[in-house]
Amino acid sequence: MQKQQIHFVTGKGGVGKSFFAAALAESLAKMSQYSPQENVTSKTISKPILLAEFNDHSFYREYLGDKPAYFDLAQWTGAECLKEYAIHLLKIESLYKLFFGNPITRALIDVSPGLLELAILGRATSYPRKHGPPLKYTHMVFDAFATGHFLTMLRAPGGLAKIIQFGPMGEQTRSIDQWIRNPEFCHIHLVSLPEEMPATETVELFETIKSEFGITPKVYLNKYLFLKKADLANEPESVKIYFTNLLEQQELAEQIFKDHKIKYVPVPLIPEIETEKLLHEASEYLLKEVL
């Protein structure tokens, strides 16, 4: 297998993270020249891409079904990742049950902010660390948490390494921290909208990630309007007002990125109501213009 890459998709709530993550997964599959085979159940073929969501919502199931054509779909919860890790570490299932059934452990999990997030990162980095069940995907795309919670997650290994200095968990934690700081392996995609508020928040997140983790995230302006004010000259007044307002917000957002010398990739507003068509169009765009 070629080297594995992981991709975190994050951004402010409501900017279209889930949509973008699915489009990215599909375009990565197309890039690896994977094409869905008809009449073959997805269990019998191994797809090169995994799309995993951390948030518990059924966006994908509702719009893509349980088995999307281009990638494997999974939901990674912290609790489940922690269980997998604990069984792997404790080896004995009964000891695991004793451990997790115990009120101290449960309270520990609740009281240790970042422990569940650490477990997720542990699984995400299990392939290069050669630790845990192998996940043989060339690319793993994560529909990750929104801004603040995402930072909490990235900080979890470093934070917990300070508290848990010894034992196998201490070692694991430090190794996870190293891998998420490896720019060859770990890629962060920040999705933003062409509006002032999301742009400002994206700049802040971009700078924090860059300075704290040494990774330069890729920024995308979702729902970008490829229009100019001059294009609207002959349109009816209401159309002119509506689109001029959008274009003014877009200019403002672009200026914010320019002021901070942050490059961004515009992802066009695709005027399509059906999610599946929308995803295909977006993935074609990413394949052609971005990857």
Binding site: L89, L90, L95, L98, F99, N102, I104, T105, A107, L108, V111, I163, I164, Q165, F166, G167, P168, M169, G170
Partner: peptide, 26 residues
């Protein structure tokens, strides 16, 4: 004894400092 075992596991995994902190906290 169940709890003793659990705390031992916890200590093995995380080190005694962490278990101490946990004790102080609770």
């Amino acid at each position: 004894t169940g709890t003793t075992q659990v705390l031992k596991v916890l200590e093995n995994l995380t080190g005694s400092e962490f278990v101490k902190e946990l004790g102080v906290f609770f």
